[in-house]
């Protein structure tokens, strides 16, 4: 795998996960999640056979498509949150703090996944930590789904170094998709309540 692809993958993965935290509109968030999934596939080429990496990207993109389809049926920007510049700057500052913390603690954290290549380890930790941060910031069930997907993708990237059996790969893919589907179903039960809540809030 040429290192150029790896660098592009790295750029997509870190860019996607950062933008997912900064953006609060669904169109941009889903684009960021798609970018992150493409990056995940390109980065994981370094440690897995191409079909596995392609499968990882496909599962991520499929999850994005499911989320997009659900939101498009609402015929409104459901879950879009106001994102004034101050809040966006706050999230950027959190991201900077997060990345600097990972860089500072990186030597101690590489053992978590039994010493994979440094690039893989760093990317996995960035995904997990940014997913956790986003999960803490998320109020909307579908945004929680996107955050959990980020955490799971980060874990999968590191876990690929430890375990590549077919059953585990299949279970990880099923877990990702089932989690997104269940969150969509839970959201669909709550969706009729949303306008009423927003009216009360306003």
């Amino acid at each position: 795998m040429p290192s150029g692809f790896f660098l592009i993958g790295y750029f997509c993965l870190l860019g996607g996960t950062s933008l997912l935290i900064v953006f609060r509109s669904w169109n941009r968030s889903l684009s960021a999640l798609a970018l992150q999934s493409i990056g995940l596939g390109l980065v994981s080429f370094q440690i897995t056979p191409p079909p596995v990496a392609v499968a990882k990207t496909t599962v991520g993109l499929f999850a994005v498509a499911l989320l997009a389809l659900t939101l498009s049926r609402e015929k409104q920007a459901a879950g879009d949150e106001e994102n004034p510049p101050v809040q966006a700057l706050f999230r950027v500052s959190l991201l900077l703090f997060l990345f600097s913390s990972i860089v500072a603690l990186f030597p101690q954290l590489t053992g978590v996944f039994r010493e994979p290549p440094a690039g893989i380890s760093f990317a996995a930790l960035c995904l997990i930590c940014s997913g956790l941060l986003n999960l803490g910031l998320a109020e909307h069930p579908l945004r929680s789904a996107a955050s959990l997907l980020t955490i799971l993708q980060g874990f999968e990237l590191g876990y690929l170094w430890i375990e590549q059996s077919l059953l585990v790969l299949a279970l990880l893919a099923v877990t990702d998709l089932a989690m997104v589907l269940v969150m969509i179903i839970l959201y669909s039960h709550a969706a009729p309540e949303a306008p009423a809540e927003s009216r009360v809030a306003s």
Binding site: S144, M179, A190
Partner: peptide, 23 residues
């Protein structure tokens, strides 16, 4: 994931607890 489907339905529409449990 499957059990959380039991926690929210049309008569119990608030999925907050289920989302936390899944997380």
């Amino acid at each position: 994931l499957f059990l959380s489907l039991l926690l929210s339905d049309s008569t119990h529409p608030v999925p907050r607890g289920a989302v936390r449990w899944i997380s």
